Simulated assay, not measured.
Amino acid sequence: MTIEITKGIRKEIIVSMQRYFEENMEEPIGNIAAEALLDFLLEELGPIVYNKAVSDVQERLQSRVMEVDIEVHEDEFQYWSKHDRKKKK
């Protein structure tokens, strides 16, 4: 699965990468090099981050689904116990 990002986000990432290189590296990075690096990172590392996010969401949803039974559980065969309690009053 290819990770797609919008042109606007892509431009913001490239600007951020260029700033990072200016402040932390010995040489700045140009637009073409930054775009190539971004493409590499998206293809090589993007799936790792994406899969981790999907896994985290699955765990969270599974936890919520398990809680549904607790939240909406109704005991069965309660008619007579309710009926008997009403008689005692």
Rank of each mutant, 00 (worst) to 15 (best):
Y79Q: 05
V68T: 07
L37C: 04
H83S: 10
I13T: 02
M25G: 01
E76D: 09
P47N: 07
I29K: 03
E4D: 07
V57W: 05
L41M: 13
D84W: 06
T6N: 05
N51Y: 08
V49I: 15
N51T: 15
E26M: 09
E23N: 12
V65M: 12
I5H: 02
F40R: 15
L42A: 03
K89H: 03
V57I: 15
R60L: 11
L41K: 05
D69W: 05
H83F: 14
M66H: 05
S16Y: 04
E12M: 05
L61V: 13
R64P: 00
Q58E: 13
M25Q: 15
L45V: 11
A33Q: 10
S81T: 15
E12V: 05
I48G: 04
I29A: 02
I13A: 01
D69L: 11
K88W: 07
I32V: 15
V57E: 12
K11D: 07
Q18Y: 02
R19D: 06
K87L: 14
D84Q: 09
G46I: 11
K86N: 08
V15D: 09
L41G: 01
S63Q: 08
M1I: 12
M25V: 11
K88R: 15
E23A: 13
V54Y: 04
I14S: 00
I14N: 00
P28R: 14
P28F: 02
G46M: 09
Y50S: 11
K87D: 07
E35Q: 14
L38P: 00
K82D: 13
I32G: 03
G46A: 10
F21H: 11
I14P: 00
I32W: 05
Q58Y: 07
Y50L: 14
R85S: 05
V65K: 12
D56A: 06
K88T: 12
V15K: 11
K52F: 05
E71L: 14
E76R: 14
S55R: 13
F77Y: 06
M25L: 14
V72Q: 12
Y50N: 12
V57A: 12
V49P: 01
M25K: 15
D75N: 04
E4H: 10
I32K: 15
Y79D: 07
N24C: 02
G8A: 08
R64W: 07
K11V: 08
F21N: 06
R64V: 13
V68K: 05
T2G: 05
I9R: 08
T2I: 14
V57Y: 07
L42I: 14
K82E: 14
V54G: 01
L42Q: 07
E76I: 13
E76P: 00
E27H: 07
F21A: 14
I5P: 00
N31D: 10
E27Y: 10
G8Q: 13
E43C: 04
I5F: 03
E44Y: 09
L37A: 06
D84P: 00
V68N: 04
D39V: 07
S16T: 15
D56Q: 12
E67N: 09
V68W: 02
A33N: 03
P28W: 01
E35F: 03
E4Q: 12
